[in-house]
Nucleic acid binder design. Structure first.
Lengths: 138, 138
DNA sequence: AATTATTTGCAACAATGTTGCATTCGAATA
DNA sequence: TATTCGAATGCAACATTGTTGCAAATAATT
C-alpha cells in the first residue's frame, strides 16, 4: 500500500517525500478526478499551496497523472492507468463530468472514436469530455 | 456588416452597445477562438475588464458564443455557427488546438463520433479536443 | 554520520475572476 | 425629439488561482 506508492515514486526517479506520498495516496483512493482545491482540503492544509502545485506539475511531467480539460476553467487531475504508470503515454482520454454532482470519471476502458481531420492537420492527442448525469445521480 | 452584428444582438434581446458590438465584431473576423486576454489586447483596453467578462458571460448564456475546454486552464470562446445563432443549442463541438502556434480551430463541419457510455450514464453534451499540428505549422 | 542534491515553505507578486454600487447609456414612450 | 426607465458600464475593492526566488529543511548517496 504505502510501499506501492513509494515504488511508483522511485520508478519515476522521484524522492519519496511526505507530500508526494500523501497526494498520490489521495489519487489512489479517489476513483474520480481531483482539482488543486480538493487536494488542499483533503490534506487539511498540511502542505503549502506551492508544494501542491509543484507536486502536481511533477506528476504530470512524469506521466503519473494527467490533466482533464474542462469548459469551466477548473483544471482537474486524474491518475493515469496501467500503461501510463509504466512510462508509456496515453494519447487519448475519455472523461465524463456529471452536471449534477460535479464528479469527474475517467472512462479508460472506453475507446476514443476516430476523428477525421481536414487536410494539413496532424493529430497528436485527443480528449473527449462528455457531460451529463452520472450513475449516482440519475 | 455592422448592421448584421446589431441584428444578432437584437435577435437575442440584447441592447446594442459599444462593447458588445466590438467584441462580436472581433469574433467574426477571427476564425479561431479568443481568450479574455486576447479581447483585452485587441480592444486596446477601451473597455473595462469587468465589462468584457460580463459580455462574454452574456454571449455564452444567449448561445452566441461557446466555451472551449482546454487542459491548460485557459478559457477560450468561439462563435457558434448557424444553428447556434438562431437559438438552437449545439450539443457537440470538435476543436483543434495547435501545439505549435496555439491557434484554436472550431471544426464545426466535423461529426462528433458516438461515445458509448457505461450503464447509468446519460450524455447531455460532448466536446472533443484534438491537439497536434495545424495546417499552417506543418 | 557527513555531504550533496532535491524539496519544501515562506514571502512577495502576477494574473484572473467576482461583487456592489453609482453613473451612464440605450430603448421605449409620450 | 425630449423624457423616462431599465439595463449596461466603469470603478473600487476583494477573492481566488497560479508563479518565482530564496533560505531552511529533508531525502538520498557516500
Amino acid at each position: 500500500m504505502k510501499n506501492e506508492i513509494a515504488e511508483i515514486l522511485k520508478r519515476n526517479q522521484l524522492s519519496v517525500t511526505g507530500s508526494r506520498t500523501k497526494i498520490l495516496e489521495l489519487f489512489q483512493e479517489t476513483n474520480g478526478a481531483l482539482a488543486h482545491a480538493d487536494i488542499e482540503k483533503k490534506t487539511d492544509e498540511t502542505y503549502d499551496r506551492v508544494t501542491i502545485y509543484r507536486t502536481l506539475q511533477t506528476f504530470v511531467e512524469k506521466g503519473i497523472i494527467h490533466t482533464i480539460p474542462t469548459a469551466d476553467n477548473s483544471v482537474r487531475y486524474a491518475l493515469c492507468k496501467d500503461e501510463c504508470t509504466t512510462g508509456h503515454h496515453h494519447d487519448n482520454h475519455v472523461h465524463f463530468i456529471c452536471d449534477d454532482c460535479g464528479t469527474t470519471y475517467c472512462l479508460d476502458n472506453i475507446t476514443v472514436p476516430e476523428v477525421i481531420l481536414p487536410k494539413g492537420f496532424t493529430q497528436k492527442r485527443a480528449d473527449v469530455i462528455v457531460s451529463g448525469i452520472c450513475k449516482n445521480c440519475e
